[in-house]
């Protein structure tokens, strides 16, 4: 693990660009970090070790706040808007 190509591939998956001049440093750091955390390989965990008891919690879809209560506050943060609508680039391109 941890070649500059790996870093590039992960960055593309995570929608980030790592500049060329930093690729080698990132790869070197990943090597060290993954090398360290791989020490977990030594730990023998019994097959049947139960994981912490996480459960999904649902609530009824009810009692909404009044419509429009947060509209202005939220739309104010939009980088680009048309009225109360969020303006984004065209997604489908027809060539």
């Amino acid at each position: 693990m941890a070649t500059t190509d790996d870093v590039k591939k992960l960055a593309a998956l995570a929608r980030i660009t790592v500049p060329e001049e930093k690729l080698a440093k990132f790869a070197e750091e990943f090597e060290a970090i993954l090398g360290y955390v791989s020490k977990l390989d030594e730990l023998v965990v019994p097959q049947a070790t139960p994981l912490l008891p996480y459960t999904n919690v649902f609530r009824a879809d009810e009692n909404p706040h009044e419509i429009g209560k947060y509209t202005e506050k939220l739309t104010e943060q939009f980088p680009a808007r048309e009225g109360d609508l969020l303006s984004v680039k065209q997604i489908l391109i027809h060539d």
């Binding site: 693990m1 870093v7 992960l10 960055a11 998956l13 995570a14 929608r15 980030i16 660009t17 790592v18 930093k22 990132f26 750091e29 990943f30 970090i33 993954l34």
Partner: peptide, 21 residues
């Protein structure tokens, strides 16, 4: 790509990439 690349510092990027891995 550009928002995330400019908006995150190196440690955030490092952890995002390692988490993806």
């Amino acid at each position: 790509l550009e928002s995330r690349t400019e908006g995150f510092g190196d440690e955030s990027k490092r952890r995002i990439l390692l988490g993806t891995f």
